[in-house]
Design a protein around this nucleic acid. Structure first.
Lengths: 98, 98
DNA sequence: AAAAGTGCTTTGTTTTTCAAAGTTAAATAA
DNA sequence: TTATTTAACTTTGAAAAACAAAGCACTTTT
């Protein structure tokens, strides 16, 4: 038998980062404020988790405008998709015995 | 839309506690040392996570003997089963859109 | 001009995690 | 019988992570 948790990605141990990724898998682009409201987070908390995901190159930032208002949105990268899928696969392997 | 991570159980944010539970769901009883080896943990680390799960009444301890050697084993409680299942359901809801 | 929104960064506290060492008690080896 | 080992912890302390709150730069709305 092998260690069932070894294949889980440390980055996704955080429920918040897990939530961000799960939202970005199904939405091509999501704004900072939408994430903030959906996940019920403070600005700083969200920003730092987004930063972690960005450092890992699991998400990408897009700074743009809606009209003349700044608007920052985020999207998942290919690497992010792969890593997230691998994590879910590892999770499934742990629990599929049910 | 509602917060997708709100229904995740904080206790299962930890990969280690998640691993313990996933093992206890499929095995009626597991020994301290078996858990330790499977999850590759130090005594103290495992003991403290087991303690957290016990405080929550998600697992139960059985102190016994193998021959005349002490042997501590752990099993999942009904409450533990329910909580774990609820957590997995919440996880699934987050990601089933895939 | 004042107030408010966006998207951060910085600061500092609290919480969590973890390894290492110490502990107790029994078992076995010397 | 003394020493060592194993099991299963507890305690200690340090490092890492999470988080809220405040500050900031910029722009828009009032």
């Amino acid at each position: 038998m092998k260690n069932p948790i070894a294949d889980l990605n440390k980055i996704f141990d955080s429920r918040i980062r897990l939530g961000v990724m799960s939202m970005l898998v199904v939405n091509d682009e999501i704004g900072f404020n939408d994430l903030k409201q959906m996940l019920e987070l403070t600005d700083g908390n969200l920003a730092s988790h987004l930063n972690t995901l960005e450092q890992a190159e699991f998400i990408k930032v897009h700074k743009g405008f809606i009209g003349r208002k700044t608007s920052t949105t985020y999207s998942i990268t290919e690497l992010g998709k792969q890593a997230f899928k691998a994590h879910l696969d590892a999770l499934e392997k742990m629990i599929k015995k049910l």
